[in-house]
Amino acid sequence: MHADSPPLPGRRELKRRQTRLALITAALRLTEERGADRVTTDEISAAAEVSPRTFFNYFATKEDALVGDPLEDCGAPVLPADRPLLDALLTALAPAFEQIQHDRELWLLRMRVIAANPQLLPLLIAAAASAEHRLATAIATHSGLDPDHPRPAVVAAVANAAVRVALIRWAESGDARPLIEHVREAFAILHDLRESR
């Protein structure tokens, strides 16, 4: 293992991640079959082979299991200080993109479920806003700016929009290009915009 690599998760943490993933998968599959209004937390728990009490150890509501923060295990991004901002963002977010790539079918299922159940959109927007705030904080630290300065929030919002476009293109393309390549392409466009007059 490389000296800079994060420690491997222990057995308990792996079990926690597996249970969380099983609950998310069950919630999404049942919702795709029946619609969000016709699925209960008891049914999700049964499909994931856990107790309803276990469900509520992970999620406050059924909707949290459907939308929530799917990249919870990636933690807050830490931008390398020795790289230009866009490169630092790409490096810091690469583990999240790798996780999405690894869980491609689950992400495609989540996108279908949200598209078919528009009542979930406010929760999705709230989750995205929370992630964007964490990213803005990391950008402020990287740039040496006060967290209240507008630049980190603007950069985080623009980067978030670029990632959203990349994610949609990756989901719809059906090609073999990994998500990270779509994100690099989107970030290159941001860089070009910065350089254009």
Rank of each mutant, 00 (worst) to 15 (best):
H2I: 09
D4I: 03
D4Y: 02
S5T: 14
S5Q: 15
P7G: 00
L8Q: 13
P9K: 09
R11F: 07
R20P: 01
L21V: 00
A22S: 15
A22I: 12
T25A: 12
A27D: 04
A27T: 01
A27W: 00
L28P: 07
L28Q: 08
L30W: 05
T31F: 10
E32H: 13
E32M: 10
G35N: 08
V39P: 01
T40K: 06
E43T: 02
E43Q: 12
A48G: 11
A48C: 10
E49F: 07
P52T: 06
P52G: 03
F55V: 08
F56W: 06
F56N: 03
N57H: 14
F59Y: 15
A60R: 15
A60C: 01
T61I: 08
K62S: 11
K62W: 03
K62I: 05
E63I: 03
L66S: 09
L66Q: 07
L71D: 09
L71N: 13
E72P: 00
E72I: 13
E72G: 09
D73I: 05
C74S: 11
G75M: 10
V78C: 05
V78M: 03
L79T: 04
P80S: 11
P80K: 07
R83E: 13
R83K: 15
R83I: 01
L85A: 05
L86Q: 03
A94N: 07
A96H: 03
Q99D: 10
H102D: 14
D103M: 11
E105C: 01
L109I: 02
L109A: 08
R110T: 08
R112G: 08
A115Y: 02
P118H: 13
L120G: 09
P122C: 12
I125G: 08
A126P: 11
A127E: 11
A129V: 00
A131D: 08
A136W: 05
T137L: 10
A138K: 01
H142D: 04
P147M: 04
D148F: 01
H149G: 01
R151N: 02
P152Y: 08
A153R: 14
V154S: 05
V155G: 05
A159S: 14
V163D: 01
R164C: 09
V165L: 13
V165P: 00
A166T: 03
A166H: 04
R169W: 01
W170G: 06
E172D: 14
D175E: 10
L179N: 08
V183M: 06
A186T: 03
A186M: 10
I189P: 00
I189W: 11
D192Y: 08
L193D: 05
R194F: 04
E195D: 14
E195W: 04
R197G: 14
